[in-house]
Amino acid sequence: MVGPEIHFENVKKRFDSVTAVEAFSATFKAGQTTALVGPSGCGKSTVLRLIAGLTGPDEGTVRLGSEVPAQVARRGALAVAFQDPSLLPWRTVRSNIALGAELARKPSDHVDTLIELVGLGGFADHRPAELSGGMRQRAAIARSLVSQPEILLLDEPFGAVDAITRRRLNTDLPPLWRDRGTTVALVTHSVEEAVLLSDRVLVLSDRPASVLADIATAPGVPRDSAYRASDTFRELSDRIFEALETGAVG
């Protein structure tokens, strides 16, 4: 089942004296991965929070298909993975992952399959304190996938792991949501990661965030090491950097 389209129509959001997002209109296409890149503090996370219904817009509308975020959340069709894995220290890896299904009121019968898929086989009965940072992040991603969400929100999910681990997670994990037709919104600081993982990249301006550029990456090209080494990859990265710099000057 393909996840719904996410649609922002002229959205404005203020926090006290700071306008995080203004006149923001954008579409996250159904079943695709859309990356959000932009200067730090530009309101990327606010966009994710608006999709999750954690905060509501002051003006304009946010629609997930034909529904508002709260409706989708109540159906247990949303899931999220943060930069911080946020695992419960007193639960084992298995029961931390199962929590995602439990909270979404979905069956948890494929927890063990997922544990294998994210490469944590043999660690199911360990507690988070016994795992490395990269393993914890794998567990957190598995927890976000276990409820088979229609919409997946990734807020810098690989931001806190070291470069080598990050590279490995970048190849291992994305197939888990790409193949399923989940609509994914990914916030990242890394332009390369955006080009590698997404179908489209939205380049955001400094606060208040608006869309500076909407760049389609290489459709249908497998995301492997050949892609990473290709000219297309480099050109796409350059275009994004260029857009970011224009925004910074403007």
Binding site: A52, G53, L54, A73, G76, L78, V80, L103
Partner: peptide
């Protein structure tokens, strides 16, 4: 942490 309260809200809890 706020992550946890957010996490619960994302699942509509």
């Amino acid at each position: 942490s706020q992550n946890w309260t957010d996490f619960m809200a994302v699942y509509g809890r």
